[in-house]
Design a protein around this nucleic acid. Structure first.
Lengths: 252, 252
DNA sequence: CTATTTCGCGTACCTCGTACGTGAAATGGA
DNA sequence: TCCATTTCACGTACGAGGTACGCGAAATAG
């Protein structure tokens, strides 16, 4: 774009349809972002290079810079495009647990569809419109419970932290296998398995070893495991709410 | 190193002091890792390139490959070297809240000293000896409370998720400012400030706006903010423990 | 038709990770 | 002491990445 200093991508909307002289754009920010997402889904973010994206669109790498200032900004756009898939009812229903459970599942589904999403999202602060939309819905679920805004924000952060980490734990090793170029089975057997076995057999970390050997949760199917972790967080929040609500007067 | 297929770095210990023919190594894995950490602390991970690290050590880039198989493995080594700084008493004291509070503060201190640490740590599954050591201590804090290993693991994950996210929130925007090449003050004023203002003024996200305008927590000093968030998580865990303890019978 | 504006994108520069190969160092044995 | 063997240091080189620059093509207003 035509700017010198770095400016937030969200403050630099795409050039609108305009009248006046000059050639008309042949591509669009969204089209580029969509292609980047498609490549990243199939082969990882590292495959979504400027040259590659441009190539798939049938153009040259430098053409993309008419639409996106820097590659990092394209990441922000990708995150936001992915988050656009997270759908939910227009407003909170009054059942905060239900609303947040629904939201969490939708985020998980999106995170699984785009295995790069959570890593990107938590690698750098970003705040696109769709992230705001999701965030606002989560905040809204806690509205009307008599909590103050700091407590609401705290709970939403707590929930988001959990959701993101749970998704990362669910797909992290799959991504790692892909990055090292091994298929997941070989990766478990030849790469990480022997190490974990050695650690367990060393006896130096007895509780870690128990968590490996005796874990039952780990053998559940991923969706059920996610549901349980989510319920635990929601239980925790539910347990905290009563202690916060009464303090109406004289806080701080 | 002399291996074809990718093998976990932790299964490839550095060549030991040996007898026999051949030139003696002039460097060491730890020395290289230490230099990488030093550069990353000062200028970000992206500055810790193989050439740069080697240059600072007074050697050529390719020399490093005698000690580290791939750059990614060097990241794992950096993470583990940083985690080695996290100190704590030999074993749990019996006061689980106290132990975990201490641990959390030590992790925070380390995370602030090495601003790249948390991002790297949560970008990919890694499990070096020092991470295991820290993990084991956290697990140990919950031992003896009558919880089963799955619940203990769940709590430790919950706590870790929070600690990592809190640190990321604390330093994330500073790092982002550095990456974009602006000083933090300019970044807030010229880069993100105008966008947030626009979002607030649009009125489209009322709760988010309230969290920006009315937040009191945000104005606390970072350490105090961290302490409060930590207390909230520990409160949550404390609230959940009684409900889990009773199920003694019918385990496994 | 022409001046002006905007787009497409080839070329080029610099930086990266790292494969390969050569020569220097270090040792044990003859 | 000298040499065969092993190991290390690292220069060179390749391919790939982000992106600055600038030119020619396209589109419109007058």
């Amino acid at each position: 774009m035509a700017d010198a200093d770095p400016i937030s991508i969200w403050m630099q909307p795409e050039r609108q349809e305009r009248t006046g002289p000059g050639r008309r754009p042949g591509y669009s920010r969204e089209q580029i972002t969509r292609m980047a997402v498609q490549i990243a889904d199939a082969e990882g973010v590292e495959a979504a290079t400027m040259r590659r994206i441009a190539g798939e669109l049938g153009t040259g790498a430098m053409s993309l810079y008419r639409y996106v200032p820097r590659r990092d900004d394209l990441f922000d756009l990708m995150i936001d495009l992915a988050m656009a898939e997270v759908e939910f009812p227009g407003g909170p229903s009054g059942d905060w647990r239900g609303d947040l459970t629904l939201l969490a599942r939708r985020i998980r589904a999106t995170g699984l569809r785009h295995p790069w999403l959570i890593t990107l999202l938590t690698s750098r602060p970003t705040l696109g419109p769709n992230l705001l939309r999701v965030h606002e819905f989560a905040l809204g679920a806690f509205d009307g419970l008599g909590l103050d805004i700091d407590d609401i924000t705290g709970f939403v952060d707590m929930l988001n932290d959990h959701i993101h980490s749970a998704i990362r734990r669910e797909i992290g090793w799959l991504e790692e296998a892909r990055r090292t170029g091994l298929d997941p089975e070989r990766w478990k057997r030849d790469y990480i398995g022997p190490y974990v076995r050695q650690v367990v057999e060393s006896g130096a970390f007895p509780l870690f070893s128990r968590s490996v050997l005796d874990a039952r949760t780990a053998h559940l199917d991923p969706e059920e495991r996610f549901r349980r972790g989510l319920d635990r967080i929601l239980d925790a929040i539910a347990a905290l709410i009563p202690s916060l609500r009464p303090r109406r007067a004289g806080k701080r």
